[in-house]
Design a binder for these strands. Structure first.
Lengths: 255, 255
DNA sequence: ATTACCAATCTGGTCCGACCACAAGAGCCA
DNA sequence: TGGCTCTTGTGGTCGGACCAGATTGGTAAT
């Protein structure tokens, strides 16, 4: 009974999200821990079972369990009190942005509210970012953007999924804004919707339109015209946003 | 040689920021790990020493070391590759916002560039947040803001440090904007500058002015006047920003 | 000399059992 | 009833061990 479990596979985590992908072994424990917490309907301030009990319940060693808890603590989802226990925090209010990213990574879908909020905040951030980018972009920034665009063209011609190039473009724009902290935040947003973005571009017809808008965006940035850049970004985002909202509609209709 | 270190105290972490506070024992390992990495001037992609070597070097068990690494991995500062090693990532570009928060918590001061970027992004976020707050605030939101304001008055009268009430007010405003993801991001920013804020309000003369501006802000939100609210926030932030910039000036002069 | 193969070694990933310090509660005694 | 001790439980830590996979170096066959 050493090393990896000798048993068949996982003791089954009581069917969560349908068609749960073969999660990264690293995040798998957290991936089972979070639904467990949610399923228990624990309120902020409530105490979780002890480390020893949790470890046994999930069939892992205390060390592995503690590693997961340490991560959750860093993301402000739980709080460890020595000689007392592990307590749930007000995740929705105090949790970090990366807490949501982590949830998405382990396959927990965003709530409808969270989707709306993410969409709204993304718009705020990217509109400001593209303004700054237009104002400050240097030659190197523009070159980087053009490089991404060139690669995008290649990817489209090859009929591949544009998802990665899409995020690369947007991140290159934010980078042109010359604010790395800004870039970190936006980067988290893109990690958050990585899977969705692949779905979005799975329909090959979307790629050319998106690419054309990117080019227009690039031109506005190149011309150092913040107004035009912001307008272009606004229109571009509208398309993506409507996709998200449609998804929510379909979801609420029970598709 | 079990349990807590038997040695005097910490083997001294090679003097970082002046007057490093007695770090939380939890973050102390990371607090020593980060300077170690920085001191080695490792580039993104470089491999760190093995877990066993790091554990020995820092005088902790592998388990404790792994817990710290797990946190750094979650914050996208390092990447663990099975059967290969631990690699440094492009922290400035890929690291999460919470990576900076963690650094601040362990006593690593922000670089001048980071300060400027944080200040800029905070302005962007709070200006938008206060607009939304003015547009959407409900009765409960306003009540919460007023409650914070009342407590602020008490704290000022008692001559205590306004720092906590200050952040509570700003966070209450963001909460009134009705976007919890937004709140998470801003919350990280406030955690980031927690220590500095206490210094700021250590000068008791600042509290009354700040409070007055908060009240004006509150009134604009109560009146549901986004324009006025944004203008008030803009002016309010200017004061704080000038403090930060002065600090940088003094720092670069070598104070 | 070159190629093919194999065994030693190193790495992260995991498990186990133990000990520590501290806090809270149970139980006992005055 | 009051105050005490002792048991129990908790997170925090340690050290040793095994595993699977990758890397590497040397060796044997070509």
């Amino acid at each position: 009974m050493r090393g990896k479990q000798t048993e068949p596979v996982h003791p089954v985590a009581a069917g969560e999200g349908l068609a749960a992908p073969p999660l990264d072994e690293r995040t798998s424990l957290i991936g089972r821990l979070l639904p467990f917490i949610a399923h228990r309907r624990l309120e902020p301030g409530d105490r979780l079972p002890s480390e020893r009990e949790l470890a046994e319940r999930f069939g892992v060693s205390r060390g592995a369990l503690r590693e997961a808890i340490a991560v959750l603590e860093t993301l402000r989802m739980v709080e460890r009190r020595p000689n007392s226990g592990i307590y749930l925090r007000a995740v929705a209010k105090q949790g970090s942005l990366d807490a949501i990213v982590l949830q998405a990574e382990v396959g927990i879908p965003l709530t409808e509210t969270e989707v709306r909020e993410v969409v709204e905040l993304r718009r705020i951030l990217e509109l400001q970012a593209v303004r700054l980018a237009a104002e400050r972009r240097g030659a190197a920034d523009l070159a980087r953007i053009d490089q991404v665009l060139a690669e995008s063209g290649r990817v489209i011609a090859a009929g591949e999924n544009l998802a990665d190039q899409d995020s690369a473009f947007h991140l290159a724009v934010v980078e042109a804004a010359g604010n790395h902290v800004f870039l970190r935040v936006v980067n988290s947003f893109y990690l958050l919707s990585r899977t969705r973005r692949r779905h979005y571009f799975a329909d090959g017809r979307r790629a050319p339109l998106s690419h054309a808008q990117h080019v227009a965006l690039r031109d506005a940035i190149a011309a150092q015209d913040p107004e035009r850049a912001e307008a272009a970004m606004g229109g571009h985002l509208r398309g993506v946003e409507s996709y998200w909202m449609e998804l929510l509609q379909r979801q609420s209709r029970g598709d």
